[in-house]
Amino acid sequence: MSSPLAKLLRRSVRALGPAIPGVSLRETLRAGGGAIAGLGVAGLFVLSPKVDLELGLFLIAPFGASSVLLFAAPNSPLAQPWSAIVGNTLAALVSVAVCLSISDPLLRVVLAVSLSVAAMSVARAIHPPAGAVAMTAALSPDMVRELGFMFALMPVALGTLILVLIAVIYAHLTGRRYPFRQFEEDNALGTADPPPLQRLDLSEQELTGILQRYRQSLNLGVEDLARLIGAAELQAATHRTEPLTAAAIMSRDLVTVAFDTPLSEVADLFRQYSFTSLPVVAEDGRFLGIIYQIDLIRRAREDTLSLDRGFVAAMTRLFDTRSAAYVKAGEVMSVSIPKAAPDTPAGALLPMLAESGCDAVPVLSEECLAGIVTRTDLIAALARRTLGSAA
């Protein structure tokens, strides 16, 4: 048995290790690219010698710290526009006032940073790089005396605003969300109902209370907390559904179409079987994609806009097999969809069907289609399991 000293040593060594989970290469490149874009574009605005001398615009070290939050941790409450712009600007205003009033260097630094922290707390605009803004000003009294309170406007407020605007655009282009989601905002479908995973029967006030109780309000937003709780509940559900697997609940006798199948035949199959989705497979059984009924509507809508014709005319064109350029199933199928293996736990299918916007998950075995799990299949399986447990 290990001695208490050895256990203490192991705990101490582990405590010195990284506390942040590993980051994917894609996210690493996204964050680094964001910092390049943010500081690069901001530099184009402020590094012109004429602008530097006449308007007092220049890059300051705290902008680098702000870039870390804006591009590497865009979901953090500390990185949001209000926190970044107001926090940095408040710190600049406070530190300029201190510099113009206090001559002692040490007292000037201490008061500038501490009063800036207090001001940010009152304004609910905590932004860690703002502490560096305050120290930059406190350590550069000659610059502050020359610029006065204009220092808070340029470079601080304007420079931070530029970084925030770039972060908004960059997040949109790279598939991230910035500013972060607001609780009870419209979901992806444009309706006011929370997404299925966030219907927790907990109000915004209750979730806020949890964050405040555990002193996490600076690290996590209310909406993100709801998402995490929902994900944790689903993960816990996987423990209760095992060893139920996709193979046990999937539909095996499938109606499929080929890549070249005309959409008129696809529509006939939808009407005949009342399906909402049809898998597309190659001659050798390889899975190629899946067609949802909504894909037909989307394609007709695209044709309506691109060909400048009515919606009915666009739908008619989709199903017209007399044309040499008739639309094929493979041209409208969806390929970026969740997929499962036969041994995938049923619980792991829950978020796939709840979050991805699809109502059927293909089950693949060595790239070939083995079955399909629909929402109906999963609901029926969980209902049987629940009733069996109750009995």
Rank of each mutant, 00 (worst) to 15 (best):
G209K: 09
A258W: 00
G209Q: 08
L189S: 08
A232P: 00
T174N: 11
R177P: 00
R252F: 05
S264D: 09
R177E: 08
A152L: 11
A237K: 09
L165S: 07
M154L: 12
N219W: 11
R199D: 10
A192W: 12
L202A: 14
L244T: 01
E185L: 08
P128I: 03
L211F: 06
V156M: 11
A246V: 05
Q212T: 10
R199P: 00
F183M: 14
A237P: 00
F259I: 11
R177N: 01
G131S: 04
T191D: 10
A137H: 06
P262D: 09
V156E: 10
A171M: 04
A246S: 06
F151E: 05
A247F: 05
A157N: 07
P243S: 15
D260V: 14
P196Q: 09
L228W: 06
Q198F: 13
A246W: 03
E242R: 10
P129C: 12
L228V: 07
Q272V: 12
I210G: 12
F151W: 08
L173F: 12
Q182M: 13
D260G: 15
V156I: 15
Q235A: 15
V266I: 10
L254F: 01
A137T: 08
S203E: 04
L218T: 13
A138V: 05
L197W: 08
V222C: 02
M250Y: 03
V144R: 01
G230T: 09
A171P: 03
A138P: 09
A232V: 11
G209I: 08
P129Y: 15
L254V: 02
L147S: 07
E242P: 00
N219L: 14
P262K: 09
T136V: 09
D260R: 14
L269S: 08
T261E: 02
D268W: 05
A226D: 03
M154E: 02
S203F: 09
M143C: 00
A167D: 02
G209F: 06
I169E: 10
E184K: 15
V255T: 13
T261R: 05
A237W: 06
L254G: 01
F183W: 15
A132E: 02
T160W: 07
A236G: 01
L189E: 13
F149R: 05
E204D: 14
V164S: 04
G131M: 03
R177Y: 10
P141V: 11
N187P: 01
L254E: 01
E233M: 14
T256P: 00
L234K: 02
L161D: 00
V164N: 04
A236W: 01
R215M: 06
L200C: 14
E223R: 15
A248S: 04
A167S: 12
G175H: 07
T238K: 10
S217I: 06
A236F: 06
L139R: 08
I166E: 04
V222K: 05
V255P: 00
L161V: 07
L153Q: 06
E233W: 07
Q205F: 12
I210Y: 11
S251I: 05
R199K: 14
L165R: 04
I210Q: 06
G159E: 07
Q198C: 14
F151Y: 10
A248P: 00
Q216F: 08
P129N: 12
L263I: 11
A231W: 00
L173Q: 04
F180K: 12
A132V: 03
S264H: 02
F259K: 09
L254P: 01
I162L: 12
L220M: 14
A247Y: 01
M250G: 07
P129F: 13
